[in-house]
Amino acid sequence: MILDNTILWQFDVLLLPMVIICALAALTIKDLVGAAIVTGAYSFLMCLLWTEMLAVDVAFTEAAVGAGVSTILLLATALHIKRKAKD
């Protein structure tokens, strides 16, 4: 039941750089549909990070809301407007 926190830093070392890379990629990709998908990946990695910090309810909500519904809404908007962004 009780987790020892020495096992956790390996996950962190893996996940935190990936989260930062996803955040940078979501802002730099010029194709808006691609940016929406990368935002979904960012949300899912964030959800894994919170599970590992034992915030199970928050991670559950993020998996359903952030990685699911938010991505769909961003995608729906990106398909309705011009796909190419200038920057």
């Binding site: 802002l27 940016a35 935002t39 964030m46 961003l74 962004a85």
Partner: peptide, 20 residues
């Protein structure tokens, strides 16, 4: 960012960072 959708994505990144 010049594109408004990118600004919205930046807002959601800011929000997740505060939650983190």
């Amino acid at each position: 960012k010049n594109n408004l959708l990118k600004k919205v994505i930046g807002m959601s990144i800011f929000q997740s960072a505060i939650i983190l």
